[in-house]
């Protein structure tokens, strides 16, 4: 029984660091998407990768590294708040852009590799 516990204790920090690393890589992927997508509304989708899966995986990794329950509670509070505020902020952004009259790009974009910084008219 104690051997099993020892193995779990030995694996836990490595797994936690690995999850943090995967979260960081997902954050980079989301950022690359934000840089490459053609207009504001599609960039919003790429940014939501960071808000959801990257945050979840990084915080899960930190939970596995956490030395005490207090830290776990703080991480849970951060996670809950990110999950409540993320979509609210995204919706506020999308709604503000829509109200201001920013038109989304509609239709298939395959192969059309124009400059990603172009403003949609």
């Amino acid at each position: 029984m104690t051997e099993v516990l020892d193995i779990i204790m030995a694996v836990k920090p490595v797994l936690g660091a690995l999850l943090c690393l995967v979260g960081g890589i997902l954050a980079i992927i989301g950022t690359v998407g934000v840089l490459r997508f053609p207009d504001f509304y599609t960039r919003l989708h790429a940014a939501s990768i960071t808000d959801t899966s990257a945050a979840t995986l990084t915080i899960l990794g930190m939970v596995l590294l956490a030395p005490s329950w207090l830290i776990v509670f703080k991480l849970a509070a951060i996670w809950l708040f990110l999950f409540l505020s993320g979509p609210t902020g995204s919706h506020a952004l999308a709604n503000a852009a829509h109200t201001a009259g920013l038109q989304p790009v509609i239709g298939r974009l395959r192969g059309r590799v124009d400059s990603s910084g172009e403003e949609p008219s």
Partner: peptide, 17 residues
């Protein structure tokens, strides 16, 4: 604004890490 919001989320994670 979207970039700053997303930047903030990443900074939150970075400070924790």
């Amino acid at each position: 604004v979207l970039a700053m919001n997303s930047l903030g989320t990443k900074i939150v994670l970075f400070i924790g890490v």
